[in-house]
Design a protein around this nucleic acid. Structure first.
Lengths: 350, 350
DNA sequence: GATTAGCACTCGAGTATGCCGAGTGCCAGA
DNA sequence: TCTGGCACTCGGCATACTCGAGTGCTAATC
């Protein structure tokens, strides 16, 4: 990231004023407008603007329009010029009240994304907790018709995962109960990835000493623990339609690719996962995300943690021209609250 | 519904041609265009068109444009003029192959809606099966931390419903097992609504003869059976973004209300449920649905059945100007296949 | 040396204007 | 009953023009 030490105090102030104004009004801002705020004449402002343009921090869409920030301009703005407004305590309380009452992680995340999208009037996206980082808590098998078995897996965040498994033969409820008890004793409390490792190695080691049921059940348990690292729908989006209201995005072509991206998962999840490990709030402006459909947008993310391990990401998607000083603290706090709410439950194992 | 017996053979043919042409091209059709098809002169056509306009079947957007069908025009068209094209056997096979392999009803419906939306390039909406009409198959309780109990309910369509219940006190796994066995014996095979009735009356009757655990568990079972008549997300929508491609709907305002309607449930579900009991394919054109966001759209629905009881609805949403003769058979057949796939499983109780 | 006023220039948005073509309604004639 | 002809209507498109906001540059001023 380029820094701009050569930038005079005044130039910085001016850039800040320009970005703020552009974010507020959405139209290229001219020298006159800034001159009033700064107590300088338009001509002076124009000189400074010319410098800023040379540095690639602002551009003008055409000769006789005002200037607007480039991606680098926004970057500099959010990195060092921005004065973040702390979130009102009332809002924090409101968030917490809503979140702490949720039963399952899924509901919790749904509530969180809904709240954030409403507060920002933008779209909010949340990834489900990564299973690898969660602890295995409990597994249960239920016989269904024919040779299908329902595996019910409870993870340390108290989320319930169902999976239907096609068994090699049919099992009685009693047999399955025995198997479940066995695995629960074996893996309970271990984290998901090591639980699976452990399960596999044990099955391998004890192959001859174990009964047939257990071996079969072992394979089923293995399948249940796998299921990729996340559930089928690995993230939630709320408030997408809010994005239709921004003139900046009012282009059916763009909106369509954006909405399609929400519906399809891989790239979005990859992008969010890449924000998982950086602590604090991460901001991707326009093309910085390296993801086409998000080009006209900015993404503000923060990760949330269970047991001090970052397991998921909460993000806000909106036009590049968004009120960062409000969005940043909201995303930050909400992610923390989500983590707190997840930690608050599920600490007492069964 | 008004019928138009006074309509001459020729007028009907002409209306048909006009609607077809308008559906195909999307522009008001003039007398010249129709004259070529009909082997008549434009002037003659104009006379007939004037009649049709007087009857309210077509209009012209302005003096010197061609004509396009009104809602009544479309109505007459789909009711008595339309020649439905039977679905190619290849497509039927393709659908069936895809559907029959699905494990859970949810996956099945997801697959169905995805397929239909892709085949039509429009949006497809499917309601989840109504629980009241399904049979209770199995319930299981799992103790979670503190006083929370996970109720797992399996219905006759082999769908799995999870619900976390806050219990009056904590229960051991064994206690819960006993209770589950009791309820399974009591209600197994009964249909959902009567199962709940039965449960309640039994609990009332036997109040003093039953143990405390069972009474408490009874209340939990009651809660599990309730959960409204459908799950939280009572319907699925796929291919919404396809709608952005239709010029007829290319209006951000409209699209926004439409998309918001998809996200929020009540009205859509109400609308679809009202199509549940009419057999065969039902078509709602434009404002006929009585639902604002759907005004520029048509809705083609058919219900699907389990055990000969209509339990859900599959529908296609697209511009009024859609190829009904293709959509109708597709919706019809797909709904039947969904029913067949649901019936095919879950007949053998555990 | 930094700041400012003045001036010529650029460009987009909005508006008026005119033309073309597709389509209509109506009437008279086949 | 059908058809050809004719006058008329109206939207779409292109052209031309004006207006205003804004710029860059230069020379004068603090």
């Amino acid at each position: 990231m380029a820094s701009f030490p050569e930038l005079s105090e005044r130039a910085q102030h001016l850039l800040k004023a320009l970005v703020e104004r552009y974010i507020g009004e959405g139209q290229p801002v001219g020298s006159r407008a800034l001159a009033k705020d700064a107590g300088l004449s338009p001509a002076t402002i124009r000189n400074v603007m010319a410098d800023l343009e040379e540095l690639g921090l602002i551009t003008s869409p055409h000769t006789s329009a005002g200037r607007l920030p480039t991606v680098s301009g926004y970057r500099l703005f959010v990195d060092s010029l921005l004065t973040v407004k702390p979130l009102q305590q009332g809002i924090v309380d409101h968030l917490w009240c809503d979140l702490e009452t949720r039963d399952s992680p899924r509901e919790l995340l749904e509530a969180a994304s809904k709240l954030v999208s409403e507060l920002t009037h933008m779209a909010c996206i949340v990834t489900m907790p990564r299973r690898e980082s969660l602890a295995f808590q409990h597994i249960e098998f239920l016989p269904l018709s024919e040779q299908r078995v329902l595996a019910i897996l409870v993870t340390s965040d108290q989320e319930i995962h169902n999976k239907i498994i096609h068994a090699p033969r049919s099992f009685s409820a009693a047999e399955l109960q025995v198997a479940a008890n066995f695995f629960n004793a074996m893996c309970g409390g271990k984290d998901m990835a090591t639980a699976r490792e452990h399960l596999r190695s044990e099955l391998q080691k004890e192959r001859e000493r174990l009964s047939d049921e257990l071996l079969h059940a072992g394979e089923m348990a293995d399948q249940a623990l796998q299921v990729g690292s996340r559930s089928k729908k690995p993230f939630l989006v709320r408030g997408e339609t809010n994005l239709m209201d921004f003139v900046d995005l009012a282009d059916l072509e763009r909106l369509r690719t954006l909405f399609d991206a929400f519906r399809q998962k891989e790239s979005i999840v990859g992008l969010l996962d890449s924000c998982l490990d950086s602590p604090g709030v991460k901001i991707l402006i326009g093309e910085e995300s390296g993801f086409r459909p998000l080009e006209p947008c900015s993404l503000v993310t923060a990760s949330y943690s269970v047991d001090d391990r970052a397991v998921g990401v909460l993000g806000v998607i909106g036009p590049t021209r968004m009120k960062y000083e409000r969005v940043i603290p909201l995303v930050d706090i909400t992610a923390k609250l989500v983590g707190a709410a997840l930690n608050q439950r599920g600490l007492v194992p069964t």
